[in-house]
Design a binder for these strands. Structure first.
Lengths: 128, 128
DNA sequence: CACGCGATTTACGTAAAAGTCAATCGAGCA
DNA sequence: TGCTCGATTGACTTTTACGTAAATCGCGTG
């Protein structure tokens, strides 16, 4: 496990720009340490970036991603906070289950669309 | 099956604004017919809106949604176009499969996060 | 017919998520 | 010391997906 990653290493790995990583830092999503002014990203930051990219692919906004990331952290110590956290986690999970239904429906429709295309090709006598 | 829906009916059903529906019309996603200047949405438009909302929840842009919707239409008549269409459909499906992996991973992590919270509650001796 | 009310059009505004550009910095090295 | 090259900072710009406001239209009702 590497100790530090440079900003350009990570931009290449995740195919994003330096501007994007700095934006995520401004937004408090990652907190690279500094040597002078240069950012040094640790494995934990790298892991966070991976989670951010996942969230982006699923269509979550930066704020939603921030909320999700907070859920992965150590549970709070106070009972009220804990119960609130559990409620929020359950809400996010319901959100994801809706996305899953949307996803399966879309996949099914695309399957059908492809089948129609293949059928049409067969009709046209194309050697598949 | 109703013949026509008014714009406000649909804004209520899908919880979106009239501006949004007009925007989708400008973008060519729906094509309501007109009585005078008033838009009349048909069941097919309503179905399209349902598909648009699904796409939005999955984080697709308007352009991507437009592409997906085109895939649902009648297959093209020309062989080259058909093959191209099949290729595009396969790409979109790979996209969706990635989203599904992202989704399952996120759900798993949220499951774990909730479990941690519940454990913590038990430690604190809270009657669940 | 006047009125109210929903719908339309036109145009400008805005928030989110970066992109872009210019100036600057600092570390290594020849 | 001068140079290069990657990194940083700050400011401004852009794109997407609508929001909002103002003026207008037209239809049904009293």
């Amino acid at each position: 496990m590497r100790e530090y990653y440079s900003i350009t290493e990570l931009t290449r790995e995740f195919d994003i720009s330096t501007r994007t990583l700095r934006f995520y830092e401004d937004e408090g999503l990652v907190q690279p340490v500094r040597r002078g002014r240069t950012r040094l990203f640790r494995p934990s930051d790298r892991h966070l970036i991976r989670q951010i990219m996942r969230g982006k692919r699923l269509g979550f906004s930066i704020n939603e991603i921030r909320e999700i990331i907070q859920m992965y952290r150590e549970p709070p110590g106070e009972v009220g906070q804990l119960k609130l956290m559990i409620k929020r986690i359950e809400e996010k999970r319901e959100d994801l289950r809706q996305k899953r239904r949307d996803l399966e429906e879309t996949l099914a429709e695309l399957d059908q669309a492809e089948e129609s295309c293949v059928e049409r090709l067969v009709e046209l006598g194309v050697n598949t």
